[in-house]
Write a protein that binds this DNA or RNA. Structure first.
Length: 287
DNA sequence: AAGAGGCCCTGATAGC
DNA sequence: TGCTATCAGGGCCTCT
């Protein structure tokens, strides 16, 4: 669920809180994430300074003082929580998790700084940490990724050229990180809705105007989501009891059976499983 | 080589 | 009330 906008929101809050701070200690409570946390992980990070926090696609990149990098992917359900030392009730959620309290279960990693610690919580354990030793290996790590959706390289010429002879449907390309980085299942539906393109349309049938729309609305949808603080969040059980606003941010996602939001369109939002992923679209205005 | 589908995992929810 | 089945989806893997 964390797609590019949510990860960017996390990156910004992390950068604000831990830039130039020194890691005092790392506690691993469960190494069995999507990738097993190596046994030297804690020792490696100890006493390194976090120079700054960057992001590529859905990866958070901690730039460390020995010129190495620690990558963090939040998977489906990974969240970060900042807890001041000895003040457990003053937790700051760096992710999109709504609870004002420190989660109890699934706190797998704690990164401890001078006056606070960062907790990595991940019920489903699809997330992972990865140490990258130098810049060259970092570049290698991402060399097979497509351009980020917000990058200038993601333009209509790139798309039009890429789609030649490609018979896969457009929706599957939008969530394919080799084609474009950062878009996930939720925003793929939202972007195609704005483009008025049917998700099952074969990529090679898209004209230049279609490709132009994909560029424009990919950027617009993601930037709007960043501005709103990351919206693709299905509410976790909210201990504070406040109503979640997950659904109202979307035009099609999770809106099966409801009316199309485009003015003058009398369509109904349909749900279709494409390659085992739920896809939502308007049956009238998306051609 | 492209594309489809399976798998990892836990929690929320639906249905009986 | 309590059980089981289903669904959620990011990325990597295998198979055709």
């Amino acid at each position: 669920m964390p797609e590019l906008p949510e990860v960017e929101v996390v990156r910004r809050s992390l950068d604000e809180k831990i830039k130039q701070k020194k890691i005092k200690k790392v506690i691993i409570r469960n190494r069995n994430l999507r990738l097993k946390i190596p046994y030297n992980f804690s020792n490696f990070l100890k006493n390194l300074k976090v120079i700054k926090i960057e992001r590529f696609s859905k990866y958070i990149i901690f730039n460390l003082s020995n010129n190495s990098y620690c990558l963090l992917h939040l998977g489906m359900s990974g969240t970060l929580h900042l807890v001041p030392r000895n003040k457990k009730n003053l937790i700051t959620n760096l992710s999109f998790y709504n609870s004002p309290f420190q989660p109890i279960k699934h706190n797998h990693v704690e990164i401890i700084f001078d006056n606070f610690k960062i907790i990595y919580n991940d019920p489903r354990r699809f997330g992972f940490f990865e140490i990258i030793n130098d810049k060259e290996k970092l570049i290698k790590k991402f060399k097979n990724f497509g351009p980020e959706a917000l990058d200038k390289k993601f333009n209509k010429e790139y798309i039009y050229h890429y789609f030649k002879n490609k018979k896969k449907n457009i929706k599957n390309f939008l969530i394919d990180q080799k084609f474009v980085s950062g878009i996930g299942n939720i925003y793929a539906s939202e972007i195609l809705f704005e483009c008025k393109i049917n998700p099952i349309k074969k990529a090679n049938l898209l004209n230049k105007d279609n490709c132009d729309k994909i560029v424009i609305f990919s950027k617009k949808v993601l930037l709007d989501a960043i501005r709103k603080g990351g919206s693709s969040i299905k509410n976790f059980k909210n201990i504070a009891g406040t109503e979640g606003n997950f659904q109202k941010n979307f035009n099609v996602y999770f809106r099966e059976g409801l009316n199309c939001k485009k003015s003058k369109c009398h369509g109904t939002i349909k749900k279709k499983i494409i390659s085992n992923r739920s896809t939502f679209f308007c049956n009238i205005c998306q051609k």
